[in-house]
Design a protein around this nucleic acid. Sequence first.
DNA 1: CGACCATTTGATATGGATCAAGCGATGTGG
DNA 2: CCACATCGCTTGATCCATATCAAATGGTCG
Lengths: 220, 220
Amino acid sequence: MSPRTKFAMAGRNTCPTSPSKSKAFQTAIERIGIAVKYERNAEIYAEDDPADSLYQVIRGTVRSYKLLDDGRRQIGAFYFPGDIFGLEAGAGHTFAAETIVDSKILVIRRIPFVALASRDNNVAHQLWTLSATEVRRAQDHATVLIMNAQERVIGFLHEMARRSPAEAEIDLPMSRGDIADYLGLTVETVSRTFKQLERSASIALPTSRHIVLRDHAAFT
Amino acid sequence: MSPRTKFAMAGRNTCPTSPSKSKAFQTAIERIGIAVKYERNAEIYAEDDPADSLYQVIRGTVRSYKLLDDGRRQIGAFYFPGDIFGLEAGAGHTFAAETIVDSKILVIRRIPFVALASRDNNVAHQLWTLSATEVRRAQDHATVLIMNAQERVIGFLHEMARRSPAEAEIDLPMSRGDIADYLGLTVETVSRTFKQLERSASIALPTSRHIVLRDHAAFT
DNA sequence: CGACCATTTGATATGGATCAAGCGATGTGG
DNA sequence: CCACATCGCTTGATCCATATCAAATGGTCG
């Protein structure tokens, strides 16, 4: 693989996730929303910003995060094309959101969206489903966080593989630092754990951002 | 305090949480649901059971949990009077639920409830709010899980204090083992951390299940 | 009183953090 | 176009927090 290919692949074009979102719903939000381009590491919204829009990734990758009192950063989620984020029941965002790579984001104003939901039962149901998806994501996140370093990293790879277009082939748009802050580990530990998994032939690492899952059984 | 008082207090009678649930909503679910008594350590539903009801704690305490492949138990949440749990967007429960102490639970069948939501915008909105509350809870849980043992325990005490009728006085219905499985620590570490906090005069431990928060500033 | 379970306490082992340094790729300015 | 600065990643050495193993204590109930 050429040195540049990996970045091209990091901006995914497919939408392998979110099977439960109906076509009608997708059409509706595309009508209400407007597509906006962000370059990499651009802020979409900050923590505590008023939550007057929600967002769907069209192209690229987004991380949500919050800064703890002592300066540590916790990454709450990564969002890929098709994923919807930033929907809040309260008035403000509880996490900030930034692009990881150059991205295109559908920005949907909350007021017309919620208004639509109160007219259209299908949309209201999707609204609930979106929250429920987010609950599940956060619970799964908590589940990997009670485990040891190797299990956390494997859990992370699972999650990425599930959302990757090519089942056993992963292109990571995010840095080791992002992964570390998502998993509650240090960059050094993430790096060493990848190396261990490579030595035990569970994965191959052609480049630091491209991972091939071997022994896919152990990863299910 | 007499040896028995703590258990009497563990069954809380107040509903300090859930300020966003409307009176009309509460009336509606009370009309649809039926109250059921469970004795302590009784199963309400198992992991993967069909999710055809949701539940509100009337009296007592509930833990939700899942068993990991290697037998470890992860506790996902504790539910106190007023809390609603077991609402799923999918077909099955992703966590099991058990009472911790003798409890009274309002059991609400899902079908009439969802039907009501599709007729009544207010209920539909509450449905969304419930999910959003659960998202927040799970995110907060993930946030404490990236921290060290002392911070996890303090985070846990915060959470309990917030939901306790008496601000700086906590009666724990759950065992050290439950706390450990919620925080991803061992019972020994939980016990030692409580002791440390007591030695540093951050808390007092009149009995192992009763905690008084001193220096409430450090706990905010 | 005696058995059982929850909790505490102690001794030791170890996984991951921390501190430190090197390496390779990328981008920038001369 | 090359030299250099920067950034992301890796690797090594050491330290410390928490797990693990083991046993004692204490409260509760029959």
